[in-house]
Design a binder for these strands. Structure first.
Lengths: 380, 380
DNA sequence: GTCCTTTGTAAAGGAGCCTGACGAATGTAG
DNA sequence: CTACATTCGTCAGGCTCCTTTACAAAGGAC
């Protein structure tokens, strides 16, 4: 969908509705304040047309990315432009304290954007762990105490005053990449996050795949990179045991590597030409490439986006690409996440905006490109 | 959707339409001959109702399962009951000869069912290989010469006089299992076919997953059971090289096994207590279990159905179940395909019927259970 | 026999869309 | 500068699909 000034007649042509109906729609939207007159067309043959534009400040949506260490909040206006962002360290007391923290950050973002908080209509929140739509709880959410004890959806609705959809953060990252990342043209793709943990968000034919119990994309459990029948290893996941951040450090130290405190450090040593770092990354890439081969064999995605603090590193992406290109007849397209750590946040905003659009315009398409430029510098 | 006699008022309640509208729908359908009066309700309080039933013989649909060695054709009436089936060895001349063969089998099935061939409204055909919707061609279709040279959809339409949807046979098998097999309650599941080749049909949230290029479910390429970076092995697929029928025989012979001509023979020897046969199947099950673990990690299906001449064997299913139950906290449900070799055929019939229902009733649900009893004994 | 329930039809109307006609406003050709 | 072609937006009317309300007909329950 394109945005920007549009006339009644143009709208009719774009939507396929009759001129008459389009005109009624415009009248209606204007009466409700969703759009307003912008100007006139000029220079073309025929009568000049009155153009309309979205009243971007008429409504806002909230996106939340709740992590074990940080809470990230973004407010976007009706046009999809980010009006304000806030970050904070996640409240360690967990549970309701985190809910209250999100509410406070939202108020602060609204103030910074100069937006009436009552104009925020919908929200979406990404969180690690598996979300149970039935109970509204997030189960297996690590690092945040008591979050699995409360109905998060209900609590957020009470604290914020509007509905908030909850979704796995990696799934939202996939949504984000499709909205404003590198998957705008792709209907079927996978977002593989490699950071502290390993996860994947899947989109097939433009829809998120959640699986029967909401555990689709839990590729930590892929039987690759180790003995899948080792029941101790299975608890964390065979793949995670092989290329999770802990495993990477073990590999590095096992190869005699020194001078790196964490995975970021290993990447730093890689630049210095450290042999252990190189071998470590070669090994990790080799296992990761196998994971992508498995994803491809099962799902046939148009591309796979690598994200997360480790996955998005070009040193790793290059290695994986080289391995896959080496012998596949039609190599799998692999990209580093352009949105990086903001993918889930963008996905949350996009999801909330999509809900808003659906309720206002009766459509689900999101506005594209143009909205992307403004307002991001407001970010905390 | 239930079928069987239904009154106007009942229809209104079932569909949520108003009594008035339901009445109009009934009037319309009766005028067009799709339904007819059946009788009256009795014994209940209130005025007795006139009931209606489908005129099952008003229209038929065709299902085709085209394999490298056999062509299977089934005719079903409007109620979904199989009216006639035909089988034949696939015409080895391939191409248009196969199309003509399908047309001949269809005529013969119609004659056997006592149905006017002009009443066949839609068809669906399953075939190995990847179907390209754009060109109507089936590419990489093994064992049938020249089939990738012709527009199969067009040719079938000309020969048969009605439209035929073409789909990968394993995908249709998944549809079949959902319609009349063991996945009627499952919205997200996988059908894994293990026979001459290896393939998988995927359903997520009740919809087939085809992938970006129609190659979803090509699990022959799963990087399991061998070195995935061996480019020779990759051509056929790493997994297929490990547990395809050829690989199974190699394993058996490599273990000193004797007296089995084919995989069926190995299963026979298993019953006799042959140690090589047992080890072979243990190994195959071990690799297959890993494949299911990968499928589970990526898709989180409600269950996995094992089909194909090898996959549906209880000796194998039991072994796989035992391996998965051994250490998984929440074991994956694994079932042997109850439809067996007829899964794809049933899926084809179901798909065609679904199209017919859509066009007649403006709905996509298929009739359930009750239709299953009648007419199958007419099968060839 | 009366009452209550249920079926099915009739009448009227609304929501959402469309078509066709037409006046108003504009650029362009002569 | 004028006549014309083009485009915008509205008006009037109508179609389709569905709903609500009212009511007559047909049955069981007491």
């Amino acid at each position: 969908m394109r945005s920007g000034p549009i006339s009644r007649a143009e709208l009719a042509r774009a939507t396929g509705l009759s001129k008459q109906t389009a005109s009624e729609v415009v009248r209606d939207l204007e009466a409700n304040g969703w759009i307003r007159e912008r100007g006139q067309t000029q220079g073309l043959v025929g009568r000049s047309a009155t153009t309309y534009e979205l009243d971007a400040g008429r409504a806002y949506v909230l996106g939340v990315d709740l992590g074990g260490t940080k809470v990230h909040v973004a407010l976007a206006d009706l046009s999809g432009a980010i009006a304000a962002e806030e970050v904070d360290a996640t409240d360690r007391r967990g549970g309701h304290h985190v809910i209250e923290q999100i509410a406070a950050l939202t108020r602060s973002a609204a103030a910074r954007a100069g937006a009436d908080p009552r104009r925020i209509r919908y929200g979406a929140m990404g969180s690690p762990g598996v979300f149970q739509p039935g109970s509204g709880r997030i189960i297996i959410a690590p690092n945040i105490p008591d979050l699995d004890q409360i109905d998060v959806v209900k609590a957020l609705r009470v604290s914020l005053g509007f509905g908030v959809a909850v979704e796995n953060d990696v799934n939202l990252a996939a949504v984000g990449e499709r909205w404003r990342g590198c998957c705008r043209e792709a209907a079927t793709f996978a977002f593989v996050a490699l950071g502290t943990g390993i996860g994947m968000g899947l989109m097939a034919d433009g829809k998120l795949i959640r699986g029967a119990r909401g555990a689709a994309g839990e590729i930590a459990y892929l039987p690759l990179g180790g003995d899948p029948f080792d029941s101790r290893g299975y608890r964390l996941g065979t793949l995670e045991n092989a290329i999770g951040s802990v495993a990477i450090m073990e590999r590095y130290r096992g190869l005699g590597g020194q001078g790196a405190e964490d995975v970021r450090g290993v990447f730093d040593r890689l630049v210095d030409g450290d042999a252990a770092a190189r071998t470590t990354m070669d090994e990790v890439a080799r296992v990761l490439a196998q994971a992508l081969m498995a994803i491809r064999a099962i799902l046939d995605p148009e591309l796979v986006v690598l994200g997360g603090s480790i996955g998005a590193r070009p040193e790793l992406v290059e290695r994986v690409r080289a391995l896959l290109n080496g012998f596949m007849a039609e190599p799998l397209r692999v990209e580093a996440s352009p949105l990086g750590g903001r993918a889930a946040l963008m996905g949350a905003v996009g999801t909330a905006l999509s809900t808003l659009y659906d309720s206002v315009f009766g459509m689900t398409d999101l506005p594209g490109e143009q909205a992307r430029t403004a307002g991001v510098e407001t970010a905390a």
